[in-house]
């Protein structure tokens, strides 16, 4: 026993002085608490937005609010035409961006030779994703509204929103395609399938859930955008429902903006804006949650 202790004592261990260690532990505690506070701030923000908008928004929403058109100079009635308009615009944008986005992703992952073309295209997709939304609005105004003569219309707005959604769909689809193991491409080719058959029958089906996630995410993004439709599609008030792709529409996000900045009855309009915001928020958040849910389920099946 004794001999052991003396042996240990004779080789003093390299240690920091006790005070230093204590201080070290304290720094760590404070640091970690700060990080936790940062994370908590996110939850707080989300909670605050949902709480305040939900609290006052619920009071404004009833069946009539969802199904009627605005009445009495925007002080009463509902927002049904704006909901319908947002659905049209979103649908149009996805119909335009989906085939284009998936095709681009297929080219980038399946066909393109490595090298400068891929890099160029990848950089342009990333940059397109970073273009401010109001700039898309100006582009749509110049090209679709004026140059192509579509006027301020559903189709101009849809195309503008579609360009905005394009990079989202491309990146999500690319990620999904890259995740498809190379080995099953080889298996298909080795059976005498051509490249296109391989893509159509093996690669795309395997990547479908991932592509779907991207599409749903972009639906959420597109439905909530305002700036691109300011000059290309949206109107504060349109009588009745749109009857052609070339009509102006009301849209939920623009409706909120217009209610808060135009008109002469701020009190009443704010109440309706609360209701509209809650509808938009619920729409967009549920869409995102669906996308997140699909993705998490997909990840699980991949691991199994």
């Amino acid at each position: 026993m004794n001999t052991h202790e003396s042996a240990i004592a004779s080789v003093p261990p390299v240690r920091q002085p006790a005070r230093g260690r204590k201080k070290r532990g304290l720094t760590q505690k404070i640091g970690f608490a700060a990080l936790a506070a940062c994370m908590a701030a996110n939850i707080f923000f989300l909670g605050a937005i949902i709480f305040f908008i939900g609290l006052k928004g619920l009071g404004a929403i009833n069946w009539a609010f969802l199904t009627q058109a605005p009445r009495d100079a925007m002080t009463a009635g509902g927002v049904a035409p704006a909901i319908v308009g947002t659905l049209y615009l979103t649908l149009g944008a996805i119909m335009f961006a989906l085939p284009l986005g998936v095709a681009s992703a297929v080219y980038l992952t399946e066909y393109s030779p490595k090298g400068w073309i891929v890099n160029l295209l990848r950089v342009s997709v990333n940059n397109l994703a970073g273009v401010p939304s109001v700039v898309f609005g100006l582009f749509g105004l110049t090209v679709f509204v004026k140059y192509m003569g579509f006027g301020v219309s559903i189709i101009s707005g849809s195309l503008t929103l579609g360009i905005l959604a394009l990079p989202v769909i491309i990146s999500a689809s690319q990620e999904a395609l890259v995740a498809v193991p190379q080995s099953i491409r080889e298996a298909s080719l080795a059976l005498g399938a051509t490249q296109w058959e391989t893509i159509r029958k093996v690669v795309l089906p395997a990547a479908l859930p991932g592509i779907l996630t991207g599409v749903i995410l972009s639906v959420g993004r597109v439905a909530g955008e305002t700036a691109p439709i300011l000059f290309t599609a949206a109107a504060f008030y349109v009588k009745g429902y749109p009857d052609s792709p070339f009509s102006e529409v009301m849209a939920l996000p623009y409706h909120i903006y217009a209610l808060m900045t135009e008109g002469t009855h701020p009190e009443e309009q704010t109440r309706i804006a609360y209701g509209s915001s809650l509808i938009l928020l619920a729409l967009v958040l549920s869409v995102s949650m669906i996308a997140i849910f699909i993705r998490q389920r997909q990840r699980k099946t991949y691991h199994a």
């Binding site: 989300l46 937005i49 305002t226 909120i256 808060m260 915001s277 869409v287």
Partner: peptide
Amino acid sequence: ILASVPSIVYGF
């Protein structure tokens, strides 16, 4: 989800 809140809602 916080990232997907539309900017108009933040503005409002």
